[in-house]
């Protein structure tokens, strides 16, 4: 087993996968705790569907899809916030509407381009083992931005998550904090696409956070545990998928599911 791990680590593509995957896992976990507690968990899923259209567009115009996805998904995130903030549409309905439009647009573009191809499939379900050097570099930059901004606004994000009204009358610009949270989420979703794919990226946001919430006794612990669970799922997922020749994205999701089940059972026992 150890020999196989050592062998895997010698491959540049595994090293790149681990770098990109770990950074994305930490970003997702940090934001996931805030999003789950604010009942915004599904926004990751919605934005991932929108990124599907952006990726199809990137493939059509032959621009690295992730570079097309970043601005479009950020705009969509702000659009969802505006729709729900102005009470024009319920928040979850706004996510559903934009998700459907995203997938429909992606399918139309793919059809216009002559049908689905292998590239688009790898974006749908992720292929972390095919991460390029440029994508690793982008992951590093964006992840450090996400982690840095969360760190800078940590106390504001915490206050607004616990009690939005109180945060507002304490002098926190909650509108700005909400926009920051969603822009960071949009960036994280785009980063996560290569790791687990558009169909599964929300799992990296939701699973580690929900698992952490089972056991955390403080907010800081919740964030740290979510990061640990996210990191473990990516590292274990990559090695297991390498060892058994399984799809890496789906394997990462299953590692997360196993962590969730174990903690769910343990929590059930401590409650009895």
């Amino acid at each position: 087993m150890m020999d196989m791990l050592k062998e895997a680590l010698q491959f540049a593509f595994i090293q790149r996968a681990l770098w990109a995957g770990c950074l994305v896992a930490v970003s997702c976990a940090f934001l996931g705790v805030f999003l789950v507690l604010r009942r915004f968990a599904m926004i990751g899923d919605g934005l991932a569907h929108i990124s599907f259209a952006a990726i199809a567009l990137g493939l059509l115009i032959k621009v690295t899809p992730i570079f097309v996805a970043v601005p479009l998904v950020v705009l969509a995130a702000l659009g969802i916030l505006r729709l729900s903030d102005r009470s024009w549409v319920y928040g979850d309905a706004a996510i559903g509407l934009l998700s459907a439009i995203g997938v429909a647009t992606g399918v139309l573009i793919a059809s216009f381009a002559g049908g689905f191809n292998v590239d688009l499939f790898s974006y749908l379900f992720g292929n972390i083992l095919s991460v390029s050097r440029a994508e690793v570099a982008l992951s590093v930059v964006l992840s450090f931005i996400i982690i840095g901004v969360v760190n800078l606004f940590y106390h504001d994000l915490f206050a607004a998550t616990f009690d939005q009204d109180h945060a507002q009358v304490s002098g926190i610009r909650t509108g700005l904090v909400n926009r920051i949270l969603l822009v960071l989420t949009a960036l994280t979703v785009v980063l996560g696409i290569k790791v687990v794919g558009t169909m599964l990226v929300s799992s990296l946001i939701i699973f580690p956070a929900v698992s952490a919430l089972f056991v955390a006794r403080s907010f800081r612990t919740a964030i740290l545990l979510a990061a640990v669970f996210g990191l473990f799922s990516v590292v274990a997922g990559i090695f297991v998928s390498y060892a058994f020749n399984l799809p890496s994205g789906a394997t990462i999701v299953y590692v997360n599911f196993v962590i969730f089940i174990i903690l769910f059972i343990l929590k059930g026992r401590t409650c009895q």
Binding site: D156, F158, A159, F162, A167, S218, R220, A222
Partner: peptide, 15 residues
């Protein structure tokens, strides 16, 4: 909500 008493009261101080 996974917040300790200390964290909640501190949020009032830092806001």
């Amino acid at each position: 909500f996974p917040a300790s008493v200390e964290e909640i009261v501190t949020s009032g101080l830092l806001a």
